[in-house]
Amino acid sequence: MTSTLLHPVPPGLRRGAARPSWKYAAPSVFYPLAGRLLPWLYAVGALLLAAGLVLGFGFAPTDAQQGDAYRIIFLHVPAAWISMVVYLAMAFWGAVGYVFGTRLSFMLMKALAPTGALAAFLCLWTGALWGRPTWGAWWVWDARLTSVLLLLFLYLGFIALQAAIEDPRRADRAGALLAVVGAVNVPVIYFSVQWWNTLHQGATIRLGAAPSMAPDMLAALLLCALGLWAWAIASVLRRLRAIVLEREAGNDWVLKLPEVGA
Results as ranks from 00 to 15, higher is better:
141 W>M: 11
10 P>H: 12
68 D>V: 13
165 I>T: 03
19 R>G: 01
103 R>E: 14
107 M>P: 01
36 R>H: 09
110 K>I: 03
102 T>Q: 11
81 W>F: 04
53 L>H: 07
207 L>E: 12
202 G>P: 00
1 M>D: 15
197 N>R: 15
157 G>R: 02
128 A>Q: 11
126 T>Q: 01
182 G>C: 08
147 S>Y: 05
204 T>N: 07
141 W>L: 14
125 W>K: 01
97 G>K: 09
10 P>A: 12
150 L>W: 08
202 G>A: 01
208 G>K: 11
115 T>W: 08
177 L>W: 13
4 T>D: 09
244 V>N: 03
91 A>Q: 09
149 L>I: 10
85 V>H: 10
48 L>R: 02
220 A>I: 11
164 A>F: 12
87 Y>F: 15
138 W>V: 05
75 L>C: 00
12 G>W: 00
224 C>W: 07
137 A>N: 05
167 D>M: 08
71 R>S: 04
256 K>Q: 15
154 L>G: 01
144 R>N: 06
48 L>S: 03
131 G>N: 11
103 R>S: 03
125 W>V: 15
188 V>S: 02
222 L>I: 15
19 R>N: 03
133 P>F: 07
242 A>E: 15
200 H>R: 07
220 A>P: 11
243 I>T: 05
184 V>N: 03
49 L>D: 08
127 G>M: 12
221 L>W: 13
59 F>G: 01
88 L>T: 08
185 N>A: 12
247 R>M: 04
16 G>V: 00
105 S>P: 01
136 G>C: 12
30 F>S: 06
32 P>C: 14
145 L>N: 01
59 F>R: 07
238 R>T: 08
175 G>E: 14
162 Q>V: 05
245 L>E: 11
157 G>E: 08
191 F>P: 03
164 A>Y: 11
179 A>G: 06
72 I>H: 05
45 G>Q: 12
59 F>W: 11
160 A>V: 05
247 R>F: 00
86 V>E: 14
194 Q>P: 00
133 P>L: 12
77 V>T: 00
167 D>S: 09
29 V>A: 06
55 L>I: 09
114 P>N: 04
124 L>K: 06
65 Q>C: 02
26 A>D: 15
93 W>N: 09
48 L>N: 04
70 Y>D: 00
144 R>H: 03
178 L>G: 01
209 A>L: 10
234 A>C: 08
174 A>V: 11
45 G>L: 04
121 F>W: 14
133 P>M: 09
112 L>Y: 07
57 F>P: 04
97 G>M: 14
254 V>A: 09
160 A>N: 05
163 A>G: 06
168 P>L: 05
178 L>Q: 12
135 W>K: 03
227 G>M: 09
116 G>C: 10
185 N>R: 02
31 Y>V: 08
111 A>M: 07
230 A>T: 06
134 T>F: 13
143 A>S: 13
171 A>E: 14
53 L>S: 04
8 P>D: 10
83 S>A: 00
246 E>W: 07
208 G>P: 01
150 L>I: 15
219 A>T: 06
